[in-house]
């Protein structure tokens, strides 16, 4: 058990704990004393109005934005005793600790092919010299092929990232995320730009992934959230407004007032 700033104790199966994180941009607090706990193997949905700070939260976890106050404690699988404060590391270091991220705006590498994008994400040593002499082996090729099937892009493997539809880019990014073999996946608005059918397929896929890994999903689409069938956190003005099952938060009067009721 570890003590948090507020004196609350943190359960042993914690993977990630945001401890009173505050981020301000020119005085405006995008995150305001935000505390949040993700357990190992958990699938968590985050909802909240535009500007609530959902993407900023992911920026803080992944080392893109340094918070003004607070810590982000991360407990890696291999050393369950010591916690790492992620706020002291940069993007590449956090990624190599096993945290992968899909961006809100799909960002695949446009002038590489689908296959090359996936190869780029493939887990493995990341130094320039290691990549210089890297030769892809059969296990890796198999992994990429399997992922291609999973994200339904097998037929487009040799197409450039630039030529994919919006939804396909989202899928490719999820595929890249998987090949990184992270322990924690942060997925920002995966269903944006997808058809209803694609949306449900995405929810299925994420549920599937969450069997082996921890996943945090940000989405506005309530049907999608319902399909995820998991614990939901509502963020508002950089702070947790409510947390619980989807039915629980949907019946919360404050949540209805600031988000759902509009």
């Amino acid at each position: 058990m570890v003590e948090s700033t507020h004196g609350k104790s943190i359960p042993d199966d914690t993977l990630l704990y945001l401890d009173s994180v505050t981020v301000s941009f020119d005085g405006f607090k995008a995150l305001n004393d935000l505390s949040l706990l993700i357990r190992k193997g958990e699938l968590r949905a985050m909802i909240g109005p535009n500007g609530a700070g959902k993407s900023t939260m992911m920026d803080v976890i992944t080392g893109k934005t340094r918070p003004d106050e607070g810590k982000v404690l991360y407990r890696q699988a291999d050393n369950s005793s010591a916690d790492t404060d992620l706020t002291r590391f940069d993007e590449a270091a956090v990624a190599n600790m096993g945290i992968g991220r899909k961006f809100q705006k799909p960002s695949v590498i446009e002038s590489l092919t689908v296959w090359e994008n996936l190869e780029l994400a493939l887990a493995g040593r990341r130094s320039p010299f290691a990549t210089l002499f890297h030769r892809i082996d059969q296990t890796d090729e198999q992994k990429i092929s399997d992922t291609l099937d999973l994200i339904h892009l097998a037929e487009r493997r040799d197409d450039l990232g630039a030529n994919l539809s919006h939804g396909q880019k989202q899928w490719l990014e999820i595929g890249m995320l998987l090949l990184q073999e992270p322990e924690l996946l942060l997925v920002d608005e995966p269903a944006a730009g997808m058809t209803d059918e694609e949306t449900f397929r995405t929810a299925d896929l994420l549920r599937e992934i969450a069997r082996e890994r921890s996943v945090v999903v940000v989405e506005h689409d309530m049907e999608f959230i319902r399909a995820l069938d998991c614990r939901v956190t509502v963020l508002h003005e950089g702070h947790v407004l409510a947390e619980g099952s989807l039915d629980h938060v949907q019946n919360n009067q404050q949540v209805i007032d600031v988000y759902l009721g509009r």
């Binding site: 993007e91 190599n96 590498i109 590489l112 990341r126 210089l132 890297h134």
Partner: peptide, 27 residues
């Protein structure tokens, strides 16, 4: 080489490449 593809990734989407775990400055 794979190194070259990381270079292209840096050219097209530098920030994205960092989140894949590549130390862009070394490349």
């Amino acid at each position: 080489s794979r190194y070259g593809r990381v270079l292209v990734a840096v050219r097209d989407a530098e920030s994205r490449t960092r989140f894949l775990g590549y130390r862009v400055e070394h490349f």
